[in-house]
Amino acid sequence: MEKNEIVRLVKERSGTDARKCMKCGKCSGRCPAYHDMDIKPHQFVSYIEKGEIDKLMQSKSLYTCLSCFACVERCPRGVAPANVIEAVRQEVIRQQGGNKIMAETVPSMIDETIPQQLLVSMFRKLNK
């Protein structure tokens, strides 16, 4: 797929308008996973608007974002940085060989305490 088309799709799937961002950085000021991210929430919004999808698709933040929606909750402009991160992650995972976890590895993770909820959500987030 052509790069611009990926950018368009990611924007569409995110359902958020990056142009509304006023670059205040509140999302990144609130983010609990900030220190585990190479590209920060506000940068996801900025880069997607600039069309720099390659950078985003290689970011480790895709797997450290906790999906806690704090950035979405607090944005003064109604932008949803977490939705952009999610849409980029979806794009990565949907590509051929993009699965980050295989069904076969799940059984080995099961122990006495781990709740199904954790396994299902992990699998849903990392496998298409």
Partner: peptide, 19 residues
């Protein structure tokens, strides 16, 4: 109302421990 680490704990325990 701060995140506990959520599903990331399955793949990155370190983050979950921090949170």
């Amino acid at each position: 109302n701060e995140c506990c680490g959520a599903y990331v704990s399955a793949t990155n325990k370190e983050i979950a421990v921090k949170k």
